[in-house]
């Protein structure tokens, strides 16, 4: 047992080192000043409190999204609709929080709640298709999400656009989460993210619903035979998965952006999948995995500001991480 976890750990280290190596190679290929670029990518996030706070701050939606994927994966489901769920959940949070602005900070809570519900319903739709007609959730989550991305785009750019700004965005919230590491963008959201990790960890490992969730993921025929309702379990998993994505979007708004800006969530959904995989389906692993992603993303952003590199190299690094993290060979989990 022990040797296997050591091997798994070795695998993770190998995956991370390989990804970093690819990043280094890319920097040398694509940058005029590769050393400066690499310095910015790797050390930039730690060079001052501002960058460091921003790095931690960008972990927040990734943690929520990663948890969302994890709940679905542990039930044997795939949620490829994270992008749309985060985006629509974020917009719903913004609109509701704007509506309830007179209530002060309560408006944030109501907004997040509605964001959770809206995103849960979006992924729940794929859940209904799956449960009623056995439609592959892999494809429907993606398609439903694609539809909602366009609808959200439309809502942000037309009916709810704030005429007073040049950005394509809604009006700004007056009440947002408190920042904790000025002048960086970091907010108290990070605490809520960590609490979410603890709750989901408890939910999956110690609750009856979590047990059903896991057992259906291990072997759904066995779960059904043992008296677990697969349809109910699937529905709950899809709702929770979507809801967590909604919170990812919602926290990005009430923490960082302050208003729903067009395409603010770009890439968060795909990153969530990678994070959940690096975390090896363990909720507690989401935190370090999200940190790793936040670090590379923030580093690339810093590098982009100071050198001539495009932030798209993170796409390549992320895809390499995705490739490597599902490797049974590297993680040593045979069979």
């Amino acid at each position: 047992m022990k040797s296997k976890s050591v091997q798994t750990l070795k695998g993770i280290i190998l995956i991370i080192s390989l990804s970093l190596l690819i990043l280094i190679i890319l920097a040398f290929l694509l940058s005029n000043e590769p050393l400066k670029t690499l310095n910015a990518i790797f050390l930039g996030p730690f060079s001052n409190l501002y960058f460091f706070g921003n790095t931690i701050n960008s972990m927040i939606p990734l943690i929520f999204g990663g948890l969302g994927i994890l709940v679905a994966l542990r039930c044997g489901l795939m949620n490829l609709g994270g992008e749309g769920q985060i985006y629509a959940g974020g917009l719903a949070t913004t609109l509701v929080a704007l509506k309830f602005m007179p209530l002060g900070y309560i408006s944030i809570v109501i907004g997040l709640l509605v964001g959770f519900i809206v995103a849960a319903l979006i992924s729940g739709l794929s859940g209904v298709f799956k449960v009623k007609w056995n439609t592959s959730e892999l494809i429907t989550t993606y398609l439903v999400s694609a539809v909602f991305i366009f609808i959200t785009n439309y809502l942000i750019s037309s009916p709810f656009k704030d005429p007073q700004t040049n950005l394509i965005a809604t009006r700004k919230l007056q009440y947002m989460l408190h920042t904790i590491l000025n002048p960086s963008l970091l907010t108290t959201g990070i605490f809520y993210a960590i609490i979410a990790v603890i709750i989901i960890n408890h939910y999956l490992n110690n609750s009856r619903l979590g047990y059903a969730n896991r057992l259906v993921g291990y072997n759904k025929e066995f779960a059904r035979y043992g008296g677990i309702s697969i349809n109910k379990t699937y529905m709950i998993a899809m709702l929770v998965s979507g809801g967590l994505h909604g919170l990812a979007g919602g926290f990005a708004i009430v923490g960082t952006y302050g208003s729903a800006i067009k395409s603010f969530s770009g890439g968060m959904g795909w990153n969530s999948i990678a994070i959940s995989l690096i975390a090896l389906n363990n909720p507690l692993g989401i935190i370090p995995a999200a940190f790793f992603f936040a670090w590379i993303n923030q580093g690339t952003l810093i590098a982009m500001q100071s050198t001539n590199i495009t932030s798209d190299i993170t796409l390549i690094v992320q895809s390499c991480i995705l490739f490597l993290t599902t490797s049974v060979v590297l993680l040593g989990d045979n069979k």
Binding site: M78, L138, I273, L277, L322, F323, L324, T325, T326, S327, V328, V329, L330
Partner: peptide, 8 residues
């Protein structure tokens, strides 16, 4: 890598 084809 014996990886999952969906993810790859």
């Amino acid at each position: 890598l014996k990886a999952n084809i969906f993810i790859t």
